[in-house]
Design a protein around this nucleic acid. Structure first.
Ligand SMILES: [Zn+2]
Ligand SMILES: [Zn+2]
Ligand SMILES: [Zn+2]
Ligand SMILES: [Zn+2]
Lengths: 130, 130
DNA sequence: CCTTGACCCTGTAGTTACTACAGGGTGCAG
DNA sequence: CTGCACCCTGTAGTAACTACAGGGTCAAGG
């Protein structure tokens, strides 16, 4: 499997695959006689895992941890559960932050019934001291 | 007003103030005999505007536009309103994305009643092909 | 046989919005 | 006069890619 095929199979860009290899997230594959990367099914499984974790919002650093944990099949899954739970609460925090932002921006926008910049409530809201 | 005072007055780091100057967002102030930056109230107003807009989630590029618009007091505020509205819908999109993520991760987490990595549902969810 | 186009390679630089030094100079209190 | 807090410039680092530049390889069509 050449890099383009692997990339297509995982909805990843070729450059991103090479990037994951460079930072040590994806093992270096064998090379063909033309020095082309040659991937096997284990690379496909690994990259699928990475992409799915990324889609769920885990950082690359956390993905690295998850991969290490996933490899030790006999270990307790407490660590995995903990990572997932703390990630969930981080997402909750982000949603709360964005919702607060949304409320405030909505409030600012609702106050707009102006004609020129001189009396624009949005500009006023940004520059409270004028 | 020295840079440290300006920074304190706007809850900004000194380095950030210098950074805003470097990228042309904040005008270069006069210098003291010791080559220290010397700010006036116009700088304070400008930086306050920038910080407030940043707090509302506008990108620096958009803040730059807003500053330009804010300076032309006779212009219609249509452009400002448009920027704010499109920013609001971007925030809504982000909230929706995060909420979908939250639902999916929550679903994955709820399925966890496992002992070892070998049968961990979270790991399974990340690596669908096994 | 040759060429054209789609791939592949390495290495570097750009993106956002800062932040953190390193290696200096200045100003004031004790 | 000697700390110490503050100021200066310039560079490099962060996250997670993305986009070239400047090459090599391979299969198909003319
Ligand atoms: Zn308006
Ligand atoms: Zn307006
Ligand atoms: Zn569990
Ligand atoms: Zn588990």
């Amino acid at each position: 499997m050449k890099i383009g095929e692997l990339a297509a199979a995982t909805a990843t860009k070729v450059e991103t695959v090479r990037y994951y290899e460079k930072i040590g997230l994806l093992a270096s594959p064998a090379r063909s006689s033309a020095n082309y990367r040659s991937y096997g099914s284990e690379h496909l499984a690994r990259l699928s895992f990475i992409r799915r974790a990324r889609d769920l919002g885990f950082s690359l650093e956390v993905v690295r941890e998850l991969l290490t944990l996933a490899d030790d099949r006999t270990e307790s899954c407490e660590a995995v559960d903990g990572i997932a739970r703390s990630h969930l609460s981080e997402i909750d925090r982000k949603i709360a932050d964005l919702s607060a932002l949304r409320r405030e921006l909505g409030r600012v926008l609702d106050s707009c019934s102006c004609d020129t910049i001189a009396d624009c409530k949005i500009i006023d809201a940004l520059a409270p001291r004028r």
